[in-house]
Design a binder for these strands. Structure first.
Lengths: 339, 339
DNA sequence: TTTAATAGTGATAACGTTATCAATGATGTG
DNA sequence: CACATCATTGATAACGTTATCACTATTAAA
């Protein structure tokens, strides 16, 4: 049994190949009678058009690529799902191009990935979407791209992102509203733009509420559990212990929880802990973490939408760009009765 | 600037297109002099061959697809990385086809995914790789496939998997060696084949050591944190509490830890807990979980290797099929001094 | 009624590769 | 020297689509 082509269908239906093509592509100006004949032949033969030939002829593959280098599985998977959802709507396929931005042959690697991939466009996430060298490479290859949650202030390319600074501000305000004044902050990896946005939101909230900044309450972390542990150990050994700790992501918050447990500090009675990202782990520990949920899926979908719009040379100005985060209050925070 | 084709290179080098094709494909019987000329022209023009045209002509896309429907992000990402590693070696690209096997239009959905994807072969993971309907669909489309960690006893297709039963046996033996006799077991989702293998290993170890099975020590879970919580609550309310609990995955083990903390049962002094999978969460809670690490990446790579071998009609008998797991002992288990 | 516009159809040429096959020249054999 | 063998090259035809353009048949406009 050999592959069925349009030619076979045309022969069977007694029409020209072009007419068959017209019917399968829902073009106008085909008589209903012809439509019937063709559709019948298609069904009888079980014809399926070859996406490859179509791609070659149309000079578009209908494949988008997600280029990433990021060890946070939950995040990447949400991104993948978001992109895929939009791809489903517009009949695109998603190819993934994992790479490692710490690899010494990083650029050659993604260059070879891009070469053999024949993609219509690329989606970038942190930290790649903030790396000028990566952007330059895509420009060099004349590949359209969109950025998912970039942190550069005015990206040149279409993008979608959440309002991290505002969410961080709200989270801090929430802690203050619970009576906390001594709020420590564990910052994320300083090479990620997010880290700075989250810090800014925290600082603004303190300033707004006339709470003086205590330098001993600031810790530099790196988004890892281990870095969180180190920071937590320091913070919880202070003479004047903070009543609340705001960790820049859930992994570090989980580490704070661990140290607190080891030191027999009751959470949330004696210490409130909040994280960021609403990672699965935030629900799998006890007490469950109060955290911030980003609409990652939505962000990814919308970035994809913009990319596809660009490919079709449609305008994408009206597509949403900035997304609100959501405070998720769980069990790791409580009211602080100051003495 | 228009795209550079082989024709352009041929013109520049003063040779025929076929000769250029021969050179880029490293074919034999081309004079060194010709090779030079062609390579020079290729470099000068910055020629890159079009993978699409090549695919159309060769009737192979060099694209593999991972079809999955599984909410465990860490697992899927490891699988993706394993596949990608092998794809890199053999110059394939990886396309992902996420779907939901609980969706009522599941089959139509994957049918349409497969249709528009033009893939050379498909990789399947649990639970899809154990669903006869999915296999039938792939057979119908004459798509080659390989199975990653299937649980059916004698899969018809090439596969690679870990020895779950043995690992589960070893873990139980380990607990027994620590002095535990009252070992409870929380089973995973019964619709996953893994669940049964893990149960079997546990049961065999008990039998081997002449430990009677206590029915109250068996709980049916579903791999979710919530199901683990329910089971843990029951187990830890028993009059004769078990001294150790073997949860079939880390999420459920984390839930046991939560309930223990709530009940102020000290882990590991008063209760040992073990999980399975070495999910990131196992290190992000305290005490960190003793668990089983599967070589997921390796398994995925080898399944991919077999699939690619099949595509090239090579033999793949000598490729490894069964992989050993590794016991990861952390802080959630300790010696039990029976009274 | 005549002319102009439009709807419907099909040959044919692309898209950028690789494979077939024939042609050429070089080398070796009887 | 005639002939077979082999390495090297290039014209040309695929792969399965879609777009161009020309051609009819039909309808609308004048």
């Amino acid at each position: 049994m050999t592959k069925i082509t349009i030619k076979d269908v045309a022969l069977r239906a007694g029409v020209s190949v072009k007419t068959v093509s017209r019917v399968i592509n829902n073009e106008v100006n085909v008589r209903a009678e012809m439509q019937e004949k063709v559709k019948k032949a298609v069904n009888e033969l079980g014809f399926r058009r070859n996406p490859l030939a179509r791609a070659l002829r149309n000079q578009q593959t209908s494949i988008l690529s997600l280029l990433y280098s990021n060890p946070n599985p939950g995040y990447i998977l949400e991104v993948q799902n978001g992109i895929q959802a939009q791809c489903d709507l517009d009949n695109y396929n998603l190819q993934i191009l994992p790479c490692d931005h710490n690899d010494e042959h990083f650029f050659e690697k993604i260059e070879s990935l891009l070469q053999r991939s024949s993609t219509d466009g690329v989606l970038l996430i942190e930290p790649l979407c903030d790396m000028p060298e990566v952007i330059d490479l895509l420009d060099k290859y004349k590949l359209p791209y969109a950025l998912i949650s970039p942190t550069t202030s005015e990206p040149k390319a279409p993008f979608a992102r959440s309002n991290d600074e505002q969410a961080s501000y709200q989270m801090t305000e929430y802690l203050i509203s619970q009576g906390h004044k001594d709020i420590a902050f564990i910052m994320g990896d300083p090479s990620h733009g997010d880290s700075h946005q989250r810090l800014k939101g925290y600082q603004n909230a303190l300033a707004e509420n006339n709470i003086a900044v205590d330098d001993t309450f600031f810790e530099q972390g790196y988004f890892t559990f281990e870095s969180g542990e180190i920071s937590a150990r320091r913070l919880l050994s202070l003479k004047n212990r903070p009543s609340a700790i705001f960790a820049s992501n859930d992994y570090m918050a989980a580490a704070v929880l661990k140290v607190a447990a080891q030191k027999q500090i009751k959470v949330p009675q004696e210490l409130s802990i909040v994280g960021y990202d609403d990672t699965p782990v935030s629900k799998q520990i006890w007490p469950a973490l109060t955290t911030v949920r980003q609409p990652i899926r939505d962000i990814a979908s919308h970035a994809t939408k913009k990319l596809i719009a660009q490919l079709n040379k449609c305008s994408f100005d009206e597509v949403k760009t900035l997304f609100e985060c959501q405070l998720v209050v769980r069990e790791s925070t409580s009211i602080w009765a100051s003495d």
